[in-house]
Nucleic acid binder design. Structure first.
Lengths: 199, 199, 199, 199
DNA sequence: CATGAATGAGACTTCATTCAT
DNA sequence: TATGAATGAAGTCTCATTCAT
């Protein structure tokens, strides 16, 4: 668990700048020149640290995963019952300070890139599989402990994740017409009622 | 109910070709040259019918709306109870023959474009607001008729739409890991149980 | 001296439209489509009557010459003394109703074309040689009749024509800073004083 | 009084090449490809130094002004009486080595561009206003010192400038028929006689 | 490490001209 | 005659990437 090298720090700066540009101007306008300006370095520098743009996108994905995973795990470990954990999970993804509009926009753009860039696809898939497994595991725990009714945990995890991401998608496209927090609360209620069997 | 003019036919051909290219190779690779080849015409032709690429995307959106709306309305009018209508709605969007992987991929790409292209944003928003209103109306009917419990119809419509689109999003990114039809069935069950109060 | 054929009328309409477009939007923006719209006919029509754009420009030049020459000759024939004729000449070119800003702008644009289009060059040259000869002839008359002092009539004609056209040029580029009619009067005074020897 | 940077040198090279191409082939044929070839660099280079073609034209105008103004001021400062200064002014603009046919052709082309390009118009106008002011100032000096009769200095300056530029215009269009130096001498004589009151 | 000048392929777009109807 | 759909060459401009310094 060595110290971060200068190169790593520089890489992170570039990734931050890149993500910022994507969030503000969109992926299509995130040119090397623009990123270099945002990062306060030359165009040559970028290619010194990242072979190409795809590598930078990969860096973003890894960076996002690396920075949020520990936080998520630390926080969720505070909750012990599946019901509470599930509640926390919904609220965590709903936190519009952590996942603000700009973040979500940039993230969606990258998501789309996955289609044509296998490496990005792989990174994203592994990221979401991890989350899906976490969710499924909570559900399985809930079933085992009798808090939740019997459902297919994997299908359910998929459904939950999809609902969360879909809510974000609608929000990104039409922020005004989307009462994101009210919808988020309703979502938590909906799924928990279904899982716990209450109405 | 006039006949379609040659211009309209040609426009449709171009839009089809465009959509096909986007679905296959992604929006970034949907160059004028590529589209022209797919449409079997010259590059100049494209600009004869569409001022620029944005106009073509708008054409796609309008085309999709125009071709699916009548079908949807015709079909849903066969069902009368809110519960049946809601069931139909879920199954309609789940139909992977109509909305196959390629279609959904292209559609998601266009969605992302909305961020930087106001005209596209407007078109998409109006499209989704229409759907949202349809869903909300069904819910309100259900509440009025006593089939559904009391919920905020608009929030619920948002949630339903988000869940559907989010499911598609996950599917597009990781088709293998997404049992889309099982998830779809689960989704219908989930929402209908919640709405009708059954468990 | 037969009647104008339909073809001739149509040609003239097109030339008028062309000249109007050039005056309003500049030669670079005088596309075939634009001209066709202004003339109220199809693009194909233009090529039916004029082989290409150069032919249209030639048509303009010929048209201008043909329409102004008779008027000029009719008017100038009313004056008999070289001094009066010279005075008329200055005032004729100074008439900003006949040669308004738009006319002059278009004319200057065409002028510049001469450099790269031999046929246009020929037409313009012959046009200006005619005017130069008229001016030189007046001067020679003046000298012969003792109204003017002895000067090189050809040089002087050149100088006069240059002054008139140069005044127009300045006007076209910076209409606000150019008191075109005051300058025109001064010009007439200047040359007539020089020619007649008065001060 | 710092050294010129490489960027400045390169810019000047490009401007020179551009001006050369315009002079030889006309503005319409001064394509980026042609200019790049003349400058011995790639097309991309041109856009590295100049945002677009209009910027290049502006560069030309600024370059011409910057390179001739000091020379003109240095030279004219050698003459002290308004009469001599006026004489110098006519001869300076008449110098066909400095302002040769190619230079004048290119310059006229740029002039016409002013109509549709506001920035170019502004640059040219300010250039000519400076010259006009210089001429008017000489005239006012002459009047004050009693060398020149009373005339409206601004009108007169306009007339002089117009005559000079008009002479150039005729020369550019029909070099053969224009005895430019004889006309130039006559012009100097004409205006000086008028100003000084001699005949 | 760092720079940014330089490249060149390729994108979008325009437009005179042709030609089937 | 008349139309305007269709073409294709050519233009401007962008941008990831390379490389000498």
């Amino acid at each position: 668990m060595g110290r971060k090298s200068i190169a790593d720090i520089r890489k992170e700066e570039i990734i931050d700048a890149f993500f910022k540009v994507v969030a503000e101007k969109g992926l299509a306008n995130a040119t090397i020149r623009e990123i270099a300006e945002a990062a306060g370095c030359s165009q040559g520098m970028l290619h010194h640290y990242f072979e190409n743009k795809e590598a930078m996108v990969l860096g973003v994905v890894e960076n996002v995963i690396a920075s949020y995973t520990p936080e998520f795990e630390r926080e969720i470990s505070k909750y012990h019952s599946p019901t509470e954990r599930m509640q926390f999970l919904f609220s965590w993804f709903l936190d519009t300070e952590r996942f603000d509009l700009q973040f979500c926009r940039a993230w969606m753009e990258i998501w789309i890139l996955a289609k044509t860039h296998p490496a990005i696809s792989t990174a994203l898939r592994s990221c979401y599989r991890v989350i899906r497994d976490v969710v499924a595991e909570i559900i399985r725990d809930g079933i085992r402990l009798g808090e939740f009714g019997k459902v297919d945990a994997d299908i359910m995890a998929n459904l939950i994740l999809g609902s969360i991401e879909g809510g974000t998608l609608l929000w990104v496209v039409d922020a005004e017409a989307t009462p994101v927090s009210a919808v988020g609360e309703q979502r938590a209620k909906l799924f928990l009622h279904y899982l716990t069997g209450e109405v």
